[in-house]
């Protein structure tokens, strides 16, 4: 089968319509998990088939697509998803956050603030934030329907009891517009404040067959206790290459002797800063 035998963006129009209906419903009810009939995609589930289907249903020919994995455009996962859409949709691609009209992401929100008109598509492994304490799907649905969210705080309580502080660092639960409690996917809690955004945010879980969404400027509150308020903490270092003190950092082991350094996880952000002349301790100007 050659590339031109695929429909635009791989999925057939029927399927895309079905997915778009789920997306629209998700946007109409922010934070609510909409079931959809997930399709087999030519990649394993762990590779973000939910996000890929949402992107496929959202793309139009003059879109410019950016794909990141843990903030980087050049990981195997990001590269292969980008190639997939270059091949099946023929869309332009970019690594620059500001140039992209659609950004598919796994585990990060770009550092560069998003703007109106952009769409951020998240790959979601486990969409149900209540799953940790309540394995029954029938029960979690009821809990969402009736706004019975006490269990989320039990989870945070357990965190503090065990670690002295809310140790949840990824997939930190949020409440959307005072209504649905939502799992923001495994982004670091550092990114949670960015969930209130001018961009449209779409979340796709392939294996669990759920889509949910945040329309622009939706209120998103990270759950916490009065005496243990939400803290989007960040490692207390500048980026070793670009000197940024406001970005999320990856720790990189540099040698066998325990040497390490901290680098921006957002490769585009780091690159833009370097291009603008910023340097860190390791930065070659």
């Amino acid at each position: 089968m050659t590339a031109d035998q695929y429909n635009f963006a791989y999925l057939d129009e029927q399927t895309k319509r079905m997915i778009r209906r789920a997306i629209l419903k998700g946007l109409a009810v922010p934070g609510y998990q909409v079931p959809f009939a997930s399709r087999e995609m030519p990649m394993p589930y762990g590779w973000g088939t939910g996000g890929v289907q949402v992107t496929a249903a959202t793309l139009v020919p003059d879109d410019r697509l950016k794909v990141i994995d843990q903030g980087a455009d050049d990981t195997t996962n990001a590269v292969s998803i980008r190639k997939f859409f270059e091949r099946t949709a023929g869309v332009a691609v970019t690594e620059a956050t500001t140039e992209a009209s659609i950004i598919q992401t796994r585990h990060r929100i770009p550092e560069t603030p998003l703007r109106e008109g952009q769409i951020l598509v998240y790959q979601v492994p486990i969409p149900e934030p209540l799953r940790f304490l309540e394995p029954r799907e029938t029960e979690t649905r009821k809990m969402h329907a009736l706004e019975e969210y006490g269990l989320m705080h039990v989870k945070l309580y357990e965190d503090i009891a065990r670690h002295g502080t809310i140790a949840t660092a990824y997939a930190y639960p949020v409440q959307v517009e005072g209504r649905y409690v939502m799992d923001p996917s495994p982004i670091p809690k550092f990114d949670n404040p960015k969930l209130e955004s001018p961009a449209i945010q779409l979340f796709g879980a392939g294996r669990e067959q759920r889509i949910y969404a945040l329309p622009p400027y939706t209120q998103v509150v990270s759950l916490d206790f009065e005496d243990h308020p939400f803290d989007p903490s960040r490692a207390d270092y500048p980026c070793a290459v670009c000197g940024a003190v406001d970005s999320y950092l990856d720790e990189v082991i540099t040698d066998d002797a325990g040497g390490r350094m901290f680098l921006c996880s957002d490769t585009d952000y780091c690159g833009q800063r370097q291009a603008a002349g910023h340097t860190g301790t390791e930065g070659a100007p």
């Binding site: 304490l133 006490g150 269990l151 705080h153 309580y157 357990e158 503090i160 065990r162 206790f225 009065e226």
Partner: peptide
């Protein structure tokens, strides 16, 4: 799967207690 304290606290949190 939840600690003794969490078991007792659950009902409090279910009715809106938010002070750890």
């Amino acid at each position: 799967g939840v600690s003794a304290g969490g078991n007792v606290g659950e009902r409090l949190m279910a009715i809106g207690a938010r002070n750890y």
